[in-house]
Amino acid sequence: MQAPASSTLCANALACRRGDRLLFRALSFELTGGEALHVTGANGTGKTTLIRVLAGLTTPYAGDVVREGMVGLLDERPALDPDRPLGKALAFWTHIDERIDARIDGGHDAAQAQRALGLEPLMEVPVRYLSTGQRKRAGLAALIGRGAGIWLLDEPLSGLDAAAIEQVTALIAGHVSGGGIALIASHQALEIDGLRSLELGDYVPSKRTGHTESAPA
């Protein structure tokens, strides 16, 4: 796990909607290397939507996102082939990452991440037989193997047992102290030094004014 290059993640006056409903508006923040942000909010306030917008997978209704550095995303879908053994499914991503970024020493970094997350005994097990928590840890191993500077984590602790929560929290803290950015959407409390927090509920429009908002450029 080499130190990620300096990276920034900036949101300017973001507004997102789902269907006709405006989820949140006027959301701005700036994160630079070594900072972590904990996004909280009730179910349905748009945490996942925010993360997908920040990752650049969907376009916001208004506002824009500035990203400098590689973005890594961990959500409830770890992108591992259900029919293949975990080892082979992870090896595919290592292989792709090595091709894209020559700095990544896939074999070594990936093996280290897999050991840290206790995945070694599961390498021969097809992904479909893994539990939610095991799948989550496998997704995190794939994320660590990439060496991305910006980590977007959607509920990284859900489905994990107490020991795994500790491991994952330590890995996130290690990433942040190594100069990386972490944005974590989670209902659970996180123990990471210097963690800022952002309550999505504060940005929900007071009335349902979704239709009168100015359209994006």
């Binding site: 997978l57 879908r77 770890p78 082939d81 894209i100």
Partner: peptide, 14 residues
């Protein structure tokens, strides 16, 4: 299947 398990999203991020 690849939309469902998020493969295309992860490739896009790369």
């Amino acid at each position: 299947e690849d939309i469902e398990i998020g493969t295309f999203d992860q490739l896009r991020l790369r």
